[in-house]
Design a protein around this nucleic acid. Structure first.
Lengths: 356, 356
DNA sequence: TTGTACGCGTTATCAT
DNA sequence: ATGATAACGCGTACAA
């Protein structure tokens, strides 16, 4: 009664041909007469045959899957919208390529490396994504050692020995600073992500560079950790300065939102007394009071590009490093001319962003 | 030069024993003399042998992986913290069980079903998780049809033919209503998720039931969609009522946060004029102005329990439906006695929640 | 303990 | 050109 799933042997028997012929017919390869092919396909359909992924993987010596290793404490994961959208982009791009996404969650850094090792050793995946790149990251060397194809996803492809998807976050930060400068701000601070991460560094450097380009002195910068608590703490530090900034550029939305609340709790009116910008354009940012001016990054598109790049690398196709449309600034209500500015009498903007 | 990875045949040759003996030794099964076993293990180590997942999967007729199919537009995914934490819980629980998590992202409902079908047909996974359960969900029947083990993750295991992890969100909502009643609120509204989802319905029913239990008339309820925009719109509807509520219980944080901003934009002071509660306890909620009173749900623990349950089901072990610690209310600053209440002169709570 | 068939599709070799 | 045959990938399980 346990109706075993049909194999190509069953199909071969039903169609009265050999095993090899079935395989050729099913894979659309030459060497099979058209009518034979039709008969085979009909038999396969009749029997409800579907390819066994397991057998196919073994025969092809390919896993037909790609991996993503996540080594973060779960709390910081949940609050990172980038991540989920990135995964969605990967997943949707993989399906039509016949690949699956294997997710491996590791509790810490040591096991992260072990996780990559395991994926490679077991042959569970044909390639992996490298995200959350760190300065002096040990993973590229590890992957080279175990011979696992990978794509590097980060703000800077220069110096990467790996194929790379450039997700350049710098233009977004530059646009934010330019916007603030245009409003008349002179003391523009930054709440940065950890120096450990390249996107922590690149955003900070973009901020510093934009100030310099505007002919302004470098404002105060507090290294933080991308968390809400970190953003709140950093904000308090900045507001406690003898000469507090009139605007703060945050390295992500979460810190910016927490910073906005921290400033409000100290009696600062945003944006009257303090302008604030975020990064990510989380869904909630457009629905805060005031709505947050932030940088919109298309994590979904990045995931899609990364997936296509990785599969191309695995297939041995030549790939150009994909350059993606840069993030752009979404101006909402958390930025305004500084109090001291001659521009500050401009009418307050609406709380709600225009439809787009 | 292409040093092929070692197989158990290589190990067998090196140790001077048969294939079967190697398999037995490596799997720690009886029938091998201790010294022989040691020799085999030494040889394996020497050669750097690691099991081939592909071969093992084929031989065992098991995928050694479980699947999670996600069928949501990427936007709503990114803003759902529950989801990512849930995945992290699954992933961490799976690793020690030798299982991997296969993530499949589908763009819509039709392809969602096709996605499950494909996972089953290809034998890519040994079982799947069923989340985001809908009323009259077609998936249990589909999975029964294709014979794919599954665990049902939802607020109510009653009526589920599948093994189930009960993630009962109702006590959290009940606690929120009770808290508001205790503060003196009489008109407590609800902004619900879609009736389509069981967790949309269960939260709404919990709210209605808690009001009845408190002897209060059922307040107004607006069906929404768990999105920020939906939360804002629903809030405006409620505030436009002839007799607006003094408190609103939202079915998730995102709607609550947007609702808070919408109320503020209308000149309502939260919590003086309107009390608000959320659901999820997103990281950001503790860092809003005012900080949001919300229900803390341990998505991480739920994921862990679901993973363990699923693997148990796959292994044919008998499982009791796991009942998890219920979510609990985290009282912050967005709730206070209503203006009209005799209690409303109680001192305002601090903006920040106590450490916990 | 050993030998070997098995799981299932892919691909190279060979016969017609 | 068409199709059959067999080896292969790699570990598991059972008979010998």
């Amino acid at each position: 009664m346990t109706s075993r799933r049909p194999t190509i042997s069953d199909v071969a028997r039903a169609a009265g041909v050999s095993l090899g012929a079935v395989s050729f017919a099913l894979n659309g390869r030459p060497g099979v007469a058209p009518e034979t092919r039709d008969r085979i396909l009909a038999a396969a359909k009749e029997l409800g045959w579907t390819p066994s992924h397991r057998a196919r993987a073994l025969a092809a010596s390919r896993a037909l899957a790609v991996g993503l290793v996540i080594a973060r404490p779960p709390e910081t994961l949940g609050s990172d919208p980038f991540f989920t959208e990135f995964i969605a982009g990967i997943g949707l791009a993989l399906a039509p390529l016949g690949q699956s996404l294997l997710l491996q969650v590791e509790p810490d850094r040591e096991r992260e490396l072990a996780g990559y090792r395991r994926l490679a050793a077991e042959g569970r995946v044909d390639g992996v994504f490298l995200t959350d790149l760190r300065v002096g990251d040990p993973r590229p060397a590890l992957l080279a050692e175990v011979g696992l194809p990978a794509v590097w996803i980060g703000p800077d492809c220069v110096g990467s020995s790996l194929p790379c998807v450039a997700v350049d976050d710098r233009p977004g930060i530059v646009a934010a600073v330019a916007h603030l400068v245009e409003l008349g701000h002179q003391r523009i601070a930054h709440v940065a992500g950890p120096d450990e991460f390249v996107h922590g560094v690149s955003r900070r450097e973009a901020w510093a560079g934009a100030l310099k380009a505007a002919g302004l002195p470098e404002g105060p910068c507090v290294r933080s950790d991308f968390s809400a608590q970190g953003g709140a703490d950093a904000t308090k530090v900045l507001l406690d300065l003898a000469d507090p900034p009139t605007a703060i550029v945050y390295a992500n939305d979460l810190m910016a939102i927490a910073g906005m609340a921290a400033a409000a709790a100290r009696g600062f009116d945003v944006p009257r007394d303090l302008s604030i910008t975020g990064f990510d354009d989380t869904e909630v940012t457009g629905h805060l009071q005031p709505a947050l001016t932030t940088v919109h990054a298309d994590a979904y598109a990045w995931g899609k590009a990364a997936a296509e790049q990785l599969v191309a690398v695995i297939d041995g196709r030549e790939t150009s490093n994909a350059d993606l449309p840069p993030p752009h600034l979404v101006i909402r209500a958390s930025t305004a001319p500084p109090r001291s500015s001659p521009l500050s009498h401009t009418p307050n903007r609406s709380t709600h962003e225009p439809d787009h």
